Amino acid sequence: MLRTISLGTCVSVQGIVVGKTADGKLMVRVDDKTFVGYPVTPSRAA
């Protein structure tokens, strides 16, 4: 599943989910790198 995570206030990464951590963070894979961050909640357009 493709998900977007936030690595900081201005940096986000989109990739394939490979796992979850105990504190609620997601691990996503982009090419040969794995990133860990908080999931971005989808916005609802009016």
Rank of each mutant, 00 (worst) to 15 (best):
V13Q: 11
A22E: 09
V18H: 02
V30T: 12
D31R: 13
T21A: 02
T21W: 00
T41A: 15
M1V: 06
S12T: 15
T34Q: 13
Q14S: 12
M1D: 09
V11S: 15
M27T: 02
V13N: 03
L7R: 08
V11K: 15
I16T: 04
V17F: 04
T41P: 09
I5G: 05
V30W: 06
K20I: 03
T21V: 00
T41D: 12
L26C: 07
Y38Q: 10
I16H: 00
I5V: 10
A46V: 12
M27C: 04
T41Q: 13
G19D: 10
T21M: 02
S43F: 11
T34C: 10
T34W: 01
R3S: 08
K20H: 13
V40H: 03
T4Y: 01
K33E: 13
V11D: 13
D23L: 05
G37N: 09
I16F: 00
R44H: 13
K33Y: 10
A46P: 15
K20V: 07
A45I: 10
S43T: 14
K33H: 11
G37W: 05
V36H: 01
F35V: 04
V30R: 12
L2E: 10
V18C: 07
V18D: 02
A46W: 09
T34G: 02
R3N: 06
D31K: 13
G8P: 00
G19L: 09
I5Y: 03
V36T: 15
K33S: 11
G8C: 02
P42N: 11
G24W: 03
V28A: 06
G37H: 09
V36C: 11
V13C: 06
G15M: 08
L2H: 03
S43A: 14
G8S: 15
L26I: 06
G24L: 04
T21Y: 00
Y38A: 10
